[in-house]
Structure formats: structure tokens, C-alpha cells
Write a protein that binds this DNA or RNA. Sequence first.
DNA 1: ATGAAAATGAAAGTCAAAGTCAAAAATAAG
DNA 2: CTTATTTTTGACTTTGACTTTCATTTTCAT
Lengths: 153, 153
Amino acid sequence: MKVKVKNKMLLKDYFTYKSKRGLKTSQKRLFIIDYFLNEDRHFSIEELYHEIRKINSQISFSTVYRTLRLLTDCGLAQECCFAEGMVRYEPVHKARHHDHLICRKCGRIIEFENSEIEKLQNHVAKKFGFLVVSHALELYGLCTMCQKKQRRS
Amino acid sequence: MKVKVKNKMLLKDYFTYKSKRGLKTSQKRLFIIDYFLNEDRHFSIEELYHEIRKINSQISFSTVYRTLRLLTDCGLAQECCFAEGMVRYEPVHKARHHDHLICRKCGRIIEFENSEIEKLQNHVAKKFGFLVVSHALELYGLCTMCQKKQRRS
DNA sequence: ATGAAAATGAAAGTCAAAGTCAAAAATAAG
DNA sequence: CTTATTTTTGACTTTGACTTTCATTTTCAT
Ligand SMILES: [Mn+2]
Ligand SMILES: [Mn+2]
Ligand SMILES: [Zn+2]
Ligand SMILES: [Zn+2]
């Protein structure tokens, strides 16, 4: 099994990390990383595992689990602890920070950025002498489609 | 065991709910509710259980657990899913909504309100045609005290 | 006081997440 | 290329935070 990587650019940070830490790159790990970074979604471990399984049924849950943690360690993935009781992982775009609108009905996730909100957050923190390291802002509710569906019934 | 309630006012909503649903009020439940509402903190089930256990060692984990869910059902408590991997419960002040600053070092929780941020949140939601039902905003970092401690070492 | 209904507690069950370890794969050395 | 060393894998076990079960106890309307 020899994996053809879709986009070598995305893997750059991984290879840097790998060299520094004396890791070895198995074909399975390579496949998972490549798939995860190119899909660019908010995967739970379970979800990613099941999708990958359809393509390559030789990859175990353990390996998917460990690869997501590895990507988190080398800064290519980020954990999202939404109010679902399980962790999701999303690729860290080289680009920038964003927050989320999450549909309680269909699970759709919309990303947004709002520098005004971020500014106000920092302002609040300063008022309390608090040093902000990270933050979570999630708006839960119904996406446009689910609102329409609800009105119909 | 006969519980002396510290503040009957706080229990009003519970008694309304109780009557509507044909519940019975055990002394243990009464003690837990009274303690929780008067302490007015952000308890994990485990924490509340251990504190209560020091005062009344005849109360089980199950009962604390079930009482917190009951309070959530009757609108007297709210679940807080901070990024710790466990749920906390806080009394719902008759007053108003607020968000949280959370110290990653000592666990201290500071509450704040900022209507400007809330307005901007609604503005963002509207832009995406999204109907917001609830939201979570938490700022994680270091409180003043923990920053000082860190500088000293 | 009594008995139907609700609450309790000890124990067992869930389930996502994390750890274990022998076997397999990758890569460094010869 | 072959061997040796190190890392990775996968099946399995363990953990921990809930959540449910059910026999026993408590509540409270009559
Ligand atoms: Mn995102
Ligand atoms: Mn609070
Ligand atoms: Zn939706
Ligand atoms: Zn602190």
C-alpha cells in the first residue's frame, strides 16, 4: 500500500515535526493525515474513522485516534469541544482564527470571524486583569434550512 | 433528619415544579437543593457530592446527581460544559445571562456580562440567516493571581 | 396509621477516551 | 540487499464521567 499524497504543501509542518522528533511515517498515517487535511471539516474521531474505513479497511480506530492527537501536537489540527459531549478535530488553516455557528438539528457548522467581538473580549479580560490564552465562542441554534423545515411541519 | 432551609425564597420555583409533577420532597433532596442554591458556585457533581458528604455523610452520589438534573429540569440550575471534560452546574440567578473567564491554572471562574458582544453575536447570526437558541463564550487563560505566581517562579 | 407512589443507594452498565503490549512496518547500519 | 533497531499498529483492556437498575426506604394523601 503506497499512498499518493494529494497536496504535499499541507504536510510540510508534519514532516518538520517528524524530523525533529525522530518519527517514522507509515503509509497508514500518511493516508489519514492527507485525507483529514484535504477534507477540511470538523471530524469526530469516530466519523473520520468510518469514512476512512470505506476507502481503506485496513486502518484501525487506534491509528486514527493517535494520528489526530499527533496532528494536534504538531499544530496541524485543533480540538473543538462543542456541546455534544465529544471532541471534534479541525485542520488549522494557515489562515486565521474563527468561531462557530452550530445547528442543533442537522449538525451543520458555519465558521465566522468577527474582530469586533475579539476586541471586546480582550477588553473584558483586561478589566479583570485576566490573561487570555484561548477562547471558545459558539452560537447554537437552527440553520436556515432547518428553520424552513420546521415551519413546514 | 430535618433540614432547616436557609432561604425559602430560592426554593419557590422548585416547589412549583414539584407540585405540577407530583414529586415528593425528601429531606436529603431538600438539603442538596438548599446547599447548592446558597453556595451559588459552579459545581461539578463530584465536587458538590464531596462537600455535602462532609456535612451529611448519609447522602449518596446518585442522589446528588439526580438532584442536579432535577434542578436543571425545573430551571433552577444550568449545565456548564467548559473545556474540562466534565459538566458543571450553576444556579440560574433570577437575574441575567452571563459568560465566563476561566483560569486554566487554579480553576477560578469569573462571570461577566457584555451586551455589546451579545449584540454583535446576533448580528453575525442574522448575516447567516441563523436562529440562535443559546451560546457559549468562555475565555481561558490565567487569572491575576496565577499570573503573579508564574512571574515569581 | 396505612398503603400507593416516589426517592434512595449500591451496584452494574455505557461510552468516549486513553493505555498496554506483542506483532508488523519503517528506516538506519552494514 | 540484509539485518538490526526503533517506531507504529491493532486488538484488547482500563479509565472515568456519567446513567440506569432495582430492592429497600421514605414520603404523604387519605
Ligand atoms: Mn472551524
Ligand atoms: Mn456562571
Ligand atoms: Zn441545520
Ligand atoms: Zn488562577
